[in-house]
Structures are given as structure tokens and as C-alpha cells.
Amino acid sequence: MNDIVQHLLLFLAVGVAIVTLGAFYTDALDQRAFRALPKRLVTFFGGCLLLVAILLICEHTFASLS
């Protein structure tokens, strides 16, 4: 397994824990909390992806040595 896949899997693991605990904290009812999970996961990982894209663009534009 190469590094990037390993890093992505690790991020997935910690992301799932963060989002699930967030959903539990927000909603005291299990069924509602679980129902909200897919949307929350998409929002969280989508937001992270957007952040990565912004950082890569900034790095390419402002920090690239070439």
C-alpha cells in the first residue's frame, strides 16, 4: 500500500469518528442521528476536499519554485 492511500484511509478513519460523534452530539435520538450521517459525511469530506483544492492552488500559485 503506498503512502497516499494509507494517508487517505487514516483520514477517512478519523473523519468518520469526528462526524459520527458530531452527529450524536447534535441529535439525542439515534435514528435521526444515523439518518443525518451520510449528509454530514459528504459535507465534511466535501469541505475538506475543497480546502485541499484551495491549498493546492495557493501552493501552486504563490509557493511553487518553478
Partner: peptide
């Protein structure tokens, strides 16, 4: 976060408060 969830739930039950829902 999990402890806060437990406390809030227990507190709501003890005082008869409504449960939190988003």
C-alpha cells in the same frame, strides 16, 4: 463530546426537558 452528550441526555431526563435535536 460523548460525555457532554451523555450529560445533556441525563439532565434532560432528570428535569423532564425536551431532548436536543438538530
Amino acid at each position: 463530546l460523548a460525555m457532554l452528550d451523555v450529560y445533556a441526555f441525563g439532565e434532560a431526563r432528570a428535569f423532564g426537558w425536551p431532548l436536543k435535536s438538530g
